[in-house]
Amino acid sequence: MHRLMIVDDSKLIRQRIAREYDADTFELIGTAENGADAIDLFEQSSPDVVTMDLTMPKLDGIDCIEQLISRDPSTKILVISALNDTSIGIEALEKGAMGFITKPFSGADLKAALKEIIDD
């Protein structure tokens, strides 16, 4: 069972992800609506899989990825962003993210992407 944390500033997207992930493989340990909260939650509950939005208030996704990876390099981060820009994707991967999907996404997209990062 993987411990999943959802980071997104949109409540809608958080609920959407929470509804769509595969409950047999993941256990939701909490959601955060900005980067700073995500770091706090990470330190409290140490998830091993994180879905990460990129444009968020307080601490943006790229910095958040960097901080999470510095705390635990084995953290598997899936970026879920509306920014369909290759350079931001490249940057997220450089910082240590494992996967990248763009909004809007389907339930199957999300499941496949999550499966792929934990299979690695």
Binding site: T86, S87, G89, I90, E91, L93, E94, G99, E116, D120
Partner: peptide, 29 residues
């Protein structure tokens, strides 16, 4: 020059065995 940097960073990621090739193909600049 901005695209150049992007390309070089991208190719560097290709040499990183931890990054999935399929994913990288989507990010091809």
């Amino acid at each position: 020059s901005t695209d150049l940097e992007k390309v070089l960073r991208y190719v560097r990621l290709l040499f990183d065995p931890h990054k999935k090739q399929k994913l990288l193909q989507d990010l091809n600049p």
